[in-house]
């Protein structure tokens, strides 16, 4: 049963087609499937498409695009849409949890009435799916966070958290690809750089890939960080 997507106007130059309001592989698969179709059909005035967890934002030139025709195309194409579930790679990402590496670990553990080690155990035993890359170059939005440690975002966002921060916000998890503002909670730090403009590939991960976090001691930080600075991915590709 294909749900009827919601058509949400985003001003005069974009529209968001929303397949759901939750993090779900099938919802994400529908988004990726519609993205394939819109890109292939390339209606006049199309500027670009932005697939996210649960919706596809289509950006266009308002003057040259026939908006009604675009909506008709979307309505028609989503009637019998099948989700696209890409088979991706699985990455092992080393993380130093807590202390100076993850300043919110203790507080988040306390919020859920558990010890920091219990929280680390739960966070590092899940398999996360990369639903989308967004917000900043290479920022991975991860689904698969255990509901027991889902944590409402901070009321006051922070102006700057360091690159490599392993964080959670609501039911989402992520890795900061660079210093960035954030309203999420910092659990740890990885030397892995998801985005490195001087490296080939510039972007390490792709939507549809999976990630597993591996707790490592602070004593390993310097060696891993040095390798990452030298252009090594540090993240290890695993066989799923």
């Amino acid at each position: 049963m294909v749900p009827t997507p919601k058509i949400l106007p985003c001003g005069d130059s974009a529209v968001t087609i929303e397949f759901g309001d939750r993090i779900d592989p099938d919802v994400n698969g529908m988004v990726l499937a519609l993205d394939d179709i819109i890109r292939a059909r390339a209606p006049e005035g199309l500027l670009e498409t932005v697939p996210t967890y649960r919706s596809l934002t289509v950006q266009f030139d308002p003057v040259t695009t026939d908006y009604d025709a675009l909506i008709r195309l979307v309505t028609e194409e989503t009637k019998d849409l099948a989700p696209r579930n890409a088979v991706g790679r699985r990455w092992r990402v080393p993380v130093v949890y807590g202390g100076d590496f993850g300043s919110d670990l203790d507080e988040v553990a306390q919020t859920h009435g558990m010890t920091p080690n219990q929280l680390i155990e739960i966070h590092s035993s899940a398999i996360y799916r990369i639903y989308m890359i967004g917000f900043l170059p290479g920022f991975t939005y991860l689904g698969g966070l255990d509901k027991r440690i889902a944590t409402s975002r901070r009321v006051q966002p922070r102006a700057k958290i360091p690159a490599g921060t392993i964080m959670i916000g609501g039911e989402q998890a992520g890795i900061a690809p660079m210093d960035m503002p954030s309203g999420w909670h910092n659990l740890g730090l990885t030397p892995v750089r998801p985005y490195a403009p001087e490296r080939d590939p510039v972007f390490l991960f792709a939507a549809g890939d999976e990630i597993v976090f591996e707790p490592v001691d602070a004593s390993r930080w310097e060696a891993l960080e040095k390798a990452a600075r030298a252009g090594e991915p540090v993240a290890e590709e695993m066989r799923p």
Binding site: C10, G11, S13, A14, T16, E18, D21, R22, I23, V50, T52, Y53, R54, S55, L56, T57, Q59, M132, G134, F135, Y141, S152, R153, G170, E171, Q172
Partner: peptide, 12 residues
């Protein structure tokens, strides 16, 4: 105010 992140455009 917690929603699942979605696309952003200029002027949002």
């Amino acid at each position: 105010f917690n929603i699942v992140s979605d696309g952003i455009v200029d002027g949002h």
